[in-house]
Amino acid sequence: MRWFGFGFNAFGQIIVHEKSMEGARGDANEVKVSGPTELTSQADRPGCCVKTACDSGVCLAGFLSSDACRGLPLRESRGCRDALIGESCLTLAFSDRLESWDLQKEEKTPAWSMDIKTPPESSGACVALPLVPGGYIATKPPLYRSLSPQLRAKRLALSSEHAILLSASGAVYTWGLGSHGQLGHGGLASEEEPRAVEALLGMPMSCIATGNWHTVCISDGGDLYVWGWNESGQLGLPSRGLRKALQQQSSQQAATGDLYTWGWGDYGQLGHQTLISSDEPQRVEFFREQQMHVSDVVCGSWNTFAAVAKEEVSCA
């Protein structure tokens, strides 16, 4: 699997060859990569926000000094099934345990750990971070926070100030900061405990995601629901142009694996070879032109990373 990145790169989150910098702008302290650029591993680049969990361990790149890198638990991460990185800690999920390492300290032992037991019928399935047995890993201390077993959590997405949970029944719960409407409860009040989003009751959801001040989920039927802060068009509203484009394309067969982005684009994080924001979802043509099938996407505050599977799609 190949990974591509675009957007803010001041701390080396995106490893870029000099010859690939035509699409980047800014000075040495502010690099903007406006088009998809394939990530490469370089031993001399200190490690960050991009994680790769595999048998050989976790690879880091970005906002860490070379001195701090020497204290990273890269060797201890070998064999981990999943990884979650925050501003100050790296959480690793193994088949039998969870570990959180303080990235700002050169400790030889994890700052927090917990043994887990994998049910026999799961055949060693990995833990879906940030969810962990009995709770979840938060972005700020205390790292481990419990959840009521009655929620039957299936997935969890965290921003810096709020959370969204998808239950096994398809119900959606949110809590945390609500000042920009990101909780979806019809007001701007914050919630200390998980509260069901009443507007979605009776419509089972299958997928959830969150930005800093907005929230997204997809229903079992494939409908997209968005709410929260829309100052830069991150909700994709209004989208008259999109509806018109969909009508024009109704007779065409849509290819799976296409990547669409919208919202704030000042750092090139939309991948459209520009630094322009958009309130309408637009396809990232680079992957389409290269006949690449995007299988996974990870969004940071100011950058985007897309995984490309080995399979290719043909341009219809």
Rank of each mutant, 00 (worst) to 15 (best):
D258T: 14
G5N: 05
I218Y: 07
L242F: 15
W302K: 03
A128T: 03
C48G: 12
G300P: 02
I208F: 12
S160Y: 07
R70F: 11
E192Q: 05
S122W: 05
C315F: 07
V58F: 03
M205A: 14
S277D: 10
S20D: 13
K105G: 04
E87V: 01
G257M: 02
T261D: 00
T52I: 07
G236C: 13
P142Y: 05
D220A: 07
R78L: 06
G271M: 05
A189V: 14
K108P: 13
G134L: 00
L183W: 10
S20E: 09
V297G: 15
S122K: 10
L158I: 00
L98R: 00
H185Q: 06
N230T: 11
A83G: 10
N212T: 15
L64G: 07
C207S: 11
S314N: 09
C315S: 05
K51C: 02
W262R: 14
T261S: 05
G241C: 10
S206C: 13
L60C: 11
S65G: 09
A254R: 11
V226C: 10
R97S: 02
W262K: 14
R152P: 05
L90C: 01
P130E: 00
A316E: 08
A306E: 01
T215Y: 09
T118F: 05
E76P: 06
L39T: 06
F305H: 03
Q249P: 08
M203S: 13
R243V: 15
Y267M: 13
A254I: 09
I164A: 10
P120W: 00
A83Y: 00
E191K: 14
Y144Q: 02
Y144K: 00
P194I: 01
P133S: 02
P142D: 04
A254C: 07
S278I: 02
M292W: 15
E161S: 14
H162F: 07
C126Y: 07
C59K: 11
L129K: 02
T139R: 03
R25D: 04
D266P: 03
V50E: 00
L60S: 09
S122N: 12
Q249L: 13
N29K: 14
P281I: 12
E280C: 12
A163Q: 10
S277F: 08
H293T: 08
I218Q: 14
D115V: 06
P36S: 05
L39C: 14
N29S: 15
E30A: 07
S314L: 11
V308D: 00
V226N: 01
N9L: 14
I14H: 09
D55A: 10
S295R: 08
F8E: 00
G265R: 08
H293C: 13
G187A: 11
W264N: 05
D67S: 10
R78D: 01
D102C: 11
S160D: 04
A83V: 01
G5F: 09
P110V: 01
A153S: 03
S159H: 05
S219L: 05
E191R: 15
G202H: 12
C80N: 03
Q150F: 06
D296E: 06
H162N: 09
G178E: 00
K108C: 15
D82R: 01
L200S: 09
T274A: 06
A93T: 04
Q247H: 12
G181W: 08
D220P: 01
Y144T: 02
